[in-house]
Amino acid sequence: MRIRARVRADNPVLLDLWHRSVRATHDFLNEDDIAQLLPQVRDLYLDAVDVWVYEDTDGRLLGFIGLSGAQVEMLFLDPRWRGQGIGTRLLDHARELRGALTVDVNEQNPRAHGFYRRYGFADVGRSPTDGQGRPFPLIHMALRGAD
């Protein structure tokens, strides 16, 4: 198992992984929300951030993290592999690269919020809407003890 930089040829697999992960974890989104987000992820977000993928020994991509500076913009795992330490390994890799990390978590996604808290992030703020002004509140988090 290894973490490596995304190559453009990974994008279709990452988009499928994102789609399956969102359906498994973002039950506050309806089908229209997901349908609107999918082309944005495909056409904009994957290329707008630095993406690192978690690859198993057979070359299957099991998760990925997207960074903009020290901000974790996306962290998605194959739903079948949740709870196996992949998210933690991806965050560890991001910390090695960028040091102090921040992340925004959907308030309606308590599992993700709990995951980041267990990792060591603390709540530092809240926004009533997401970055696109939709009614999905965000919890702003920063790694505790990070300079």
Score class of each variant (00 low, 15 high):
residue 46 L to W: 00
residue 46 L to D: 02
residue 46 L to T: 11
residue 47 D to M: 14
residue 47 D to A: 15
residue 47 D to I: 13
residue 47 D to W: 04
residue 48 A to K: 11
residue 48 A to E: 14
residue 48 A to Q: 15
residue 49 V to L: 05
residue 49 V to R: 10
residue 49 V to Y: 09
residue 49 V to T: 04
residue 49 V to K: 02
residue 50 D to Y: 11
residue 50 D to W: 15
residue 51 V to Q: 06
residue 51 V to M: 08
residue 51 V to F: 08
residue 51 V to C: 05
residue 51 V to K: 02
residue 52 W to K: 07
residue 52 W to N: 05
residue 52 W to I: 10
residue 52 W to E: 13
residue 53 V to N: 14
residue 53 V to F: 13
residue 53 V to R: 04
residue 53 V to M: 02
residue 53 V to W: 12
residue 54 Y to M: 09
residue 54 Y to L: 12
residue 54 Y to A: 15
residue 55 E to Y: 14
residue 56 D to S: 03
residue 56 D to K: 06
residue 56 D to W: 10
residue 57 T to F: 15
residue 57 T to N: 12
residue 58 D to Q: 15
residue 58 D to S: 11
residue 58 D to I: 04
residue 59 G to L: 12
residue 59 G to F: 02
residue 59 G to C: 12
residue 60 R to N: 13
residue 60 R to P: 10
residue 60 R to Y: 07
residue 60 R to C: 14
residue 61 L to D: 02
residue 61 L to G: 07
residue 61 L to Y: 10
residue 61 L to M: 12
residue 61 L to A: 11
residue 62 L to P: 05
residue 63 G to Q: 01
residue 63 G to F: 00
residue 63 G to W: 01
residue 63 G to H: 06
residue 63 G to V: 05
residue 64 F to Q: 03
residue 64 F to D: 00
residue 64 F to R: 04
residue 65 I to V: 06
residue 65 I to T: 06
residue 66 G to D: 12
residue 66 G to C: 07
residue 67 L to N: 12
residue 67 L to H: 12
residue 67 L to I: 09
residue 67 L to C: 11
residue 67 L to M: 03
residue 68 S to I: 03
residue 68 S to T: 10
residue 68 S to R: 03
residue 68 S to Y: 14
residue 69 G to S: 11
residue 69 G to A: 01
residue 69 G to L: 08
residue 70 A to S: 15
residue 71 Q to I: 13
residue 71 Q to M: 13
residue 71 Q to T: 12
residue 72 V to N: 12
residue 72 V to L: 04
residue 72 V to G: 07
residue 72 V to W: 03
residue 72 V to Y: 02
residue 72 V to I: 11
residue 73 E to M: 02
residue 73 E to H: 10
residue 73 E to Q: 07
residue 73 E to S: 11
residue 73 E to P: 03
residue 74 M to W: 06
residue 74 M to C: 09
residue 75 L to Y: 10
residue 75 L to M: 10
residue 75 L to D: 01
residue 75 L to C: 04
residue 75 L to R: 10
residue 76 F to I: 05
residue 76 F to V: 03
residue 76 F to N: 07
residue 76 F to A: 09
residue 77 L to V: 02
residue 77 L to F: 09
residue 77 L to Y: 07
residue 77 L to W: 11
residue 77 L to S: 07
residue 78 D to Q: 08
residue 78 D to V: 01
residue 79 P to M: 00
residue 79 P to I: 03
residue 80 R to M: 09
residue 80 R to A: 02
residue 81 W to G: 05
residue 82 R to F: 11
residue 83 G to N: 09
residue 83 G to W: 13
residue 83 G to I: 00
residue 83 G to L: 04
residue 83 G to R: 06
residue 84 Q to N: 07
residue 84 Q to A: 00
residue 84 Q to E: 06
residue 85 G to A: 00
residue 85 G to V: 00
residue 86 I to G: 08
residue 86 I to A: 11
residue 86 I to W: 04
residue 86 I to L: 07
residue 86 I to H: 01
residue 86 I to S: 05
